[in-house]
Design a protein around this nucleic acid. Structure first.
Ligand SMILES: [Mn+2]
Ligand SMILES: [Mn+2]
Ligand SMILES: [Mn+2]
Ligand SMILES: [Mn+2]
Lengths: 222, 222
DNA sequence: TAATTAATTTAGGTATGTCTAAAATATTTT
DNA sequence: AAAATATTTTAGACATACCTAAATTAATTA
C-alpha cells in the first residue's frame, strides 16, 4: 500500500493517457497527448520518460506509449475523484452542466482518501456523473459504458440518452437548447444523406442534429 | 476587478503574513514566516521580494514586512475558503475536529469564486468554523474575535469556550479527553501558583489544565 | 526506392520555488 | 563601544515543468 504521490502534472498526463488509450488497450501517440493537454510534444516526451521511470507507463522510442496496470489503477482513482466532485457540484452546489468540469479538474488533485471516500458516502455512492460517465468505486471497478451513439441508430429506432462525451461549453449550450439531457428519449426520424445529419424526435419535437453532435451523444437502445 | 492569480505558495505566504501580523497591524519578521511555513529564511527573503513587487506587502530591508491593504483583502479570501471548507468537512463529511485543517489547507487553493460562494450558501452562510474562528464574508468583512482566554479569568469567573487557537492533533486529542468544545461552559476554581496551571470546572467535573492549554482556549465572559 | 513530409526525441533555455553557504546588517552582551 | 551573536539578505545550485530549435526516426508520396 505504498501510496505514490504524484504531481498535478503527472496526474493530468496519466489521466489523459488512460482516456486516449481506450481504458488501457491502445497505444497512445506523443502528439495526441500533446494536443489534449495543450503542451508541446517535446515536453510530452520529457514527461513520458518520467512516468516510464516510475513504471506507470511503458514506452518504446518513436513507437508509442502504453499505460501500465499500476498506471491504470491511479488514473481510475483520479477519474473517480473528478466525477464524484462533478456530482457534488451539480447536485449540491447547483452548478450548471457546463460549469462543473473545469472546477472538478482542480478538485480532482486534492489528495485525501478520506476526503473522497466520505464524499462518496455523502453523495450516496453515485454510479454515474452528471454527464452519464460511470464512476469507479474505491477499488477502481467501473461499470460498462454505452458505446452506441444516436448516429448508430437506424430510422425508427429509439434510445435513451445515457452519456455525453464532449465537455465543451458550446456543446452543452446546444444540448440545453435542444432540451437533451441524461434520460431523454430520442427517436430517429430520418437520416439526411447530403451532410450525414440526422432528424430526431425529442418530446414530440423534431430537430435536426449534425453527425458530430449525434456521435457525441451515447444512448441505450430501447 | 482585475483578479490577480496567485500561486499556491504565494497564497500560503500571504495568509501566514496576515496571521502573524495580527490582522495587518504588526510588522512581521522573516524568521517568523520561515518558522510557520517551514521554509528556510533565505527562501522567505526571495518570496518577500516577489510579493513586494506585486504590492501585496511592504518591506524594508532588515527591518520587517507589513501586509498591504490589497494583501489583506486577498488573505481574507483565502481564510474564508479555508474555514468554509472546514465547516463542510466537519458538518457534511463527518470529519473529526483534528482532521479538517490539513485537507482545508489544500482545498483553500482551488480558485473558483462561484465554487466558494455556492458552498457558502449551501452551508447556510456560517459565521464561524468548527474551531470557533470567524469566517469572512464575500466582501472580506469579518466579525470581532474573542481575545480573552481561560488563563485571563479570575477565580470564580465563568466563560463559554468560543475559540480554539491551536490546530495540532495532540491538542485536539486533549480537548476531546477533557470534553471541551465550542460552547462548553467553564468556571475557574483555582490558580496554582507553582506551575501557573489552572483548576477549572467543566460539567461539574474539576480538571487541571496547564498555562499553555488555558491560553489556547478563548472564551466569552459570562 | 528515393525524396519529402510528419512525428518524435534531444539539446539547450526559462520561470518558479526551494536549498546551502557566505556576506551584510542589526541586536545583545560584555 | 567593541565583540559576539542573531537575523536577514545575497549568491549560486537544483528540481520541476514548461518552451523553441535542431536532430533523428518513421511514414507517405512520387
Ligand atoms: Mn469532467
Ligand atoms: Mn486535472
Ligand atoms: Mn484550519
Ligand atoms: Mn494552504
Amino acid at each position: 500500500m505504498t501510496n505514490i504521490v504524484l504531481s498535478k502534472s503527472e496526474e493530468n498526463y496519466l489521466k489523459s493517457i488512460y482516456n486516449l488509450s481506450d481504458s488501457g488497450s491502445k497505444l497512445v501517440t506523443t502528439n495526441s497527448i500533446s494536443k489534449i493537454l495543450n503542451i508541446e510534444p517535446a515536453s510530452v516526451s520529457d514527461m513520458i520518460k518520467k512516468l516510464s521511470k516510475k513504471n506507470l507507463i511503458y514506452h518504446q522510442k518513436y513507437k508509442g506509449t502504453q499505460i501500465s496496470k499500476n498506471g491504470i489503477k491511479i488514473a481510475l482513482q483520479i477519474i473517480r475523484k473528478h466525477r464524484l466532485w462533478e456530482v457534488f457540484l451539480f447536485e449540491k452546489l447547483n452548478f450548471k452542466w457546463d460549469e462543473i468540469h473545469e472546477v472538478a479538474e482542480e478538485l480532482e488533485h486534492v489528495s485525501s482518501n478520506q476526503l473522497i471516500d466520505n464524499l462518496d458516502k455523502y453523495l450516496k455512492y453515485p454510479k454515474i456523473d452528471p454527464h452519464g460517465d460511470p464512476i469507479p468505486n474505491k477499488l477502481g471497478e467501473i461499470d460498462f459504458v454505452d458505446k452506441i451513439s444516436i448516429y448508430d441508430l437506424n430510422i425508427g429506432q429509439k434510445g435513451i440518452v445515457s452519456r455525453i462525451i464532449n465537455e465543451d461549453e458550446e456543446f452543452f449550450n446546444l444540448l440545453n437548447k435542444l432540451k437533451i439531457e441524461i434520460g431523454t428519449e430520442v427517436k430517429i426520424i430520418d437520416k439526411i444523406e447530403y451532410d450525414s445529419s440526422i432528424e430526431i424526435l425529442i418530446n414530440n419535437r423534431s430537430v435536426i442534429i449534425s453527425k458530430v453532435v449525434a456521435e457525441n451523444i451515447k444512448i441505450t437502445k430501447v
